[in-house]
Design a protein around this nucleic acid. Sequence first.
DNA 1: AATGAATGAGTGTTCATTCAT
DNA 2: AATGAATGAACACTCATTCAT
Lengths: 198, 198, 198, 198
Amino acid sequence: MAPLNDEQLHQIRDERKEQIMKAALNVFARRGIIGTKMNMIAAEAGISHGLLYHYFKSKDELFITLVEGAMIEADDEMKKANLMPGTPIERIRKLTEIILDEEGAPFFMLIHQARTADGVPDKAKALVQQYSMKSFVERLLPLFLEAQDKGEIVSGDPAMLISSYLSVLSGLMVLNVQDDEGFQIPEAEFLLRMLTGR
Amino acid sequence: MAPLNDEQLHQIRDERKEQIMKAALNVFARRGIIGTKMNMIAAEAGISHGLLYHYFKSKDELFITLVEGAMIEADDEMKKANLMPGTPIERIRKLTEIILDEEGAPFFMLIHQARTADGVPDKAKALVQQYSMKSFVERLLPLFLEAQDKGEIVSGDPAMLISSYLSVLSGLMVLNVQDDEGFQIPEAEFLLRMLTGR
Amino acid sequence: MAPLNDEQLHQIRDERKEQIMKAALNVFARRGIIGTKMNMIAAEAGISHGLLYHYFKSKDELFITLVEGAMIEADDEMKKANLMPGTPIERIRKLTEIILDEEGAPFFMLIHQARTADGVPDKAKALVQQYSMKSFVERLLPLFLEAQDKGEIVSGDPAMLISSYLSVLSGLMVLNVQDDEGFQIPEAEFLLRMLTGR
Amino acid sequence: MAPLNDEQLHQIRDERKEQIMKAALNVFARRGIIGTKMNMIAAEAGISHGLLYHYFKSKDELFITLVEGAMIEADDEMKKANLMPGTPIERIRKLTEIILDEEGAPFFMLIHQARTADGVPDKAKALVQQYSMKSFVERLLPLFLEAQDKGEIVSGDPAMLISSYLSVLSGLMVLNVQDDEGFQIPEAEFLLRMLTGR
DNA sequence: AATGAATGAGTGTTCATTCAT
DNA sequence: AATGAATGAACACTCATTCAT
């Protein structure tokens, strides 16, 4: 059998990396950077812990890579909100549902870890600062302005509205609600009243 | 010279315990139980790590003691909401402000740690279960029923309303918003719209 | 390069375990479970202390494993005494010599530690109880009865004879006599007189 | 009330010292020097651990003092054996009984600890060497020679006989036999057969 | 003389990371 | 590429000893 060519090797490498990152995201989100042991990631990914170090130089690097990817994805989601069909309020509702529904919780947890937890590498801290709220507000500003224009949502400083609203959504995601605990992720309708006032 | 008398010793003990618990609450809230090193607590309290163990048998015991105290305090706050003067909605606004304003963030974060983090002692887990959402809902039920009665808040299952609302508040506190980060703890007025619809 | 195959790994593991247990036996016997520091065992075995924990979950587990092995070996030795050739008294002499001669001192001291010292894990205590004197007496009973039958040893309760005799032997081994100290491990002949009366 | 005079103070001091030493002997004998915590001694003596340090500079000093006293007492006992009434073998039997019967076990255990355990101060080691077997042999030599002379005990190197016999006794004491364990401290008669051969 | 609060060196154990195979 | 043996820094906790009162 001929040895695999460069491209194939590269592809295998990328798949492995993807596999590891997926495993790591889950574990980091649930247990935080300190609570996550390299062994757990290896186990979740179904490989030996030694092999992790062929793909990522260190736990920190792995964490940073994840944060980086997460921030970019979040940014994408916000951009898409502007391009969706429907009235502004319908699009805001859709965005709300995407954030709440989606398998996005691990992602929010990860960002939260990066923002607040201890032992987070400086570079990860820098990343969440760089991409953070301010840029999300910018992305959503046209949408919210249009909504105010049409009287669909309350008046007032739109930047403040957006960051307040996103903060509420973030907070809910970060709660990491489990089924039997009494905490309640509200319906989009309930949350939208903060904006619509009706 | 005679040794210190009982009263003096008792006072020293109480002061020290208070001092340690205050330090520990801050550190646990920020860094979680695993991320918190006994040395950090000792440093924050300005004593040697050895002395911690004169007052608390272990890190776990210290953590449990804090959770216990926090849960009781939270319960008290909910009880008080029923006894405050004013219309129901005014009282709900007041409760909201107390939760958001107060130096309560470390406390909420502690509970959050106890609920979700790794390495939490079983007893602490049991405590948050025991005192959890369900009991808070019970405490607030009369207040919310009265508010619905007077048409001050929207209709619908009041237990659901309460747990949704408290979840939002919890989420916000857990975010542990720092000044320069763009996250925004909203005004009470903003949040109350979820309930009032106006 | 391929990783080591299963057989090679297994062999390394077994060798290492043996090496650690041998080192640990020496140190535990001499210094007791509390006096033995994991570092000492690691040093005696020529490995890092971290590696100990790849092979044994804890100091307690290591100690228990040793006690278990020792008890089984002792039991085996007693069983063999019945199967040896020669007259009963010759076999008792042989057993005596084996106990006194052999590199068995560390083993006796280990059992002694498990019986009497502080900080011994419950399971180790249970093991020495389970395998203790009573079972040794049972093993040796046929041999001593036969010896009494033939008039080779004194009459009287044979169980008592056996436990008295084994107690004397145990005591001597536990003394852990070093060369220059004046203590004297007697010849078998000297000790046998307790039984033979001549 | 007039303050106590010097003599009275001295006497109180001596009584306290005695009380501490008695407590310490028990604990050291049972748990060894490492297993014995200053707190345990203080508790056994019914005083605070702080007070121990008014009477003994350190744990080591306390241990050394005990060993010193024990060695002297042992020496006394041997001397007395020569002065007792009766035939030589009767006196040897009496000595055997004293050693086995007496509350002497803690004392033997202490010496054993000093000889073999770890963490024993050098001075204590020196003491047991100095007073050890050799001097006991000297003390008992006249008695054993007389016994051989009268044909009451077997012939052979009397020094060897003595040290063998004392070793057996020491070993038995060191076993620290508890009631339910199956070990058996033999009757003097049983042990004497090693010497008498009948 | 007497107490117990306070300190800090030392030990068991965990885990990120390296490396021989 | 892949494994798991091996290392050592870091942390929870204990305990001899000191010291203010």
